[in-house]
Design a protein around this nucleic acid. Structure first.
Lengths: 185, 185
DNA sequence: TTATAAAAGCAAATTATTTGCGTTAATAGT
DNA sequence: ACTATTAACGCAAATAATTTGCTTTTATAA
């Protein structure tokens, strides 16, 4: 039994959404963000511009919708043997991905949209990844800091630097992890 | 002696910039952001739309330019008697201002723009405020954490929550300050 | 199978953006 | 103080994006 998304007549399944998302991803790969327009996307997706305008409102909302999709982690954090090693490996990869050109653009797209729901989803994805690491550590019998604490002391500083300044260096990420793992409270 | 901004002929002083900024501020006060357009701003500022397009490129860059201006602190952090009290008072006010409706919009405008320079400026303003608090504490002979540390453990978590989720509660802000002031390194 | 309603297509109307060219005004050099 | 120079601005035409009214299509409910 498939899940029905629309409970009323007129539901249009996900065909348009899928082809529009695909068109956005492809266009963003082959040209600069400033050159991507809704008529262009519509043409590539085989739909009318007005369909996109009515469904997403404007380009920013559409880009945010696509970006949050691409920001969803596609795998579990790797198991590096201990909670600290897991968190360190995860944080380094996170910092690298998010500070890359495409990573930065996706974050910007998500934050630039009016609807705040997309940004919340991103934070939720991150939190879930850390949750996995925390649960694994607890299952091993290790001490592991509260997830909120990790969000505050590791994730937030990494993201702040990416958004408001430079790329966080690997050493700095390691320091952040070391600090949160060393403090008892 | 006034500082010359343009070293070549043709410099146009700051008249247009001032009137356009003023028009943006006034329009943003009386209508929603989605309704503000460049032709509207141009009309109110008494300039031609093409002037704005040529000077700022697009609406986002203009809004970012105005926002970073408004985000500049207009006074020194208040002196509450001690480094910890200073930082606590400052952090609470910062969190409140930035999580307010206008505050969120200004941050979004700054981050949504392509040019990263505006975002850097914002972080620089914040860092300067904390610098003042730190210097004052040192002048009193108090211990005070490194400014980078305060950025990581107080400013970044506040901003992360504002951008990616809920409004940070006062209690949480106080906890962040208490933690950074208690750890030796 | 049929009725219904949400979403999509189409095209005209509106609005925003770009661009070429003439004009204005700030500075450099005399 | 005067003139030459050049960047920025105004204007208007051309182009492109967005909105909107109406029709058609299609997924679901009955």
């Amino acid at each position: 039994m498939t899940v029905k998304e629309n409970l009323r007549p007129g539901g249009r399944s996900a065909r348009v959404q899928a082809s529009v998302h695909k068109a956005v991803r492809e266009l963003m790969a082959e040209m600069s963000r400033a050159e991507v327009t809704i008529p262009l996307i519509a043409g590539k997706a085989g739909v009318t511009p007005s369909t996109i305008y009515r469904r997403w409102g404007d380009l920013q909302e559409l880009l945010a919708d696509v970006a949050v999709d691409r920001l969803r982690p596609d795998m579990q954090p790797i198991d590096a043997g201990s909670g600290k090693a897991d968190l360190q490996a995860w944080a380094e990869q996170y910092a690298e991905e998010m500070s890359s050109g495409p990573g930065r653009e996706m974050i910007r797209d998500v934050l630039a949209a009016q609807a705040g729901a997309n940004a919340c989803k991103c934070a939720e994805y991150t939190r879930q990844q850390i949750d996995v690491i925390a649960e694994r550590a607890k299952a091993r019998g290790e001490a592991f800091p509260d997830v909120d604490r990790v969000m505050d002391q590791v994730v937030a500083p990494i993201m702040y630097r990416i958004l408001f300044g430079d790329v966080p260096a690997t050493k700095r990420v390691r320091d952040l992890v070391a600090r949160v793992m060393s403090t008892t409270d």
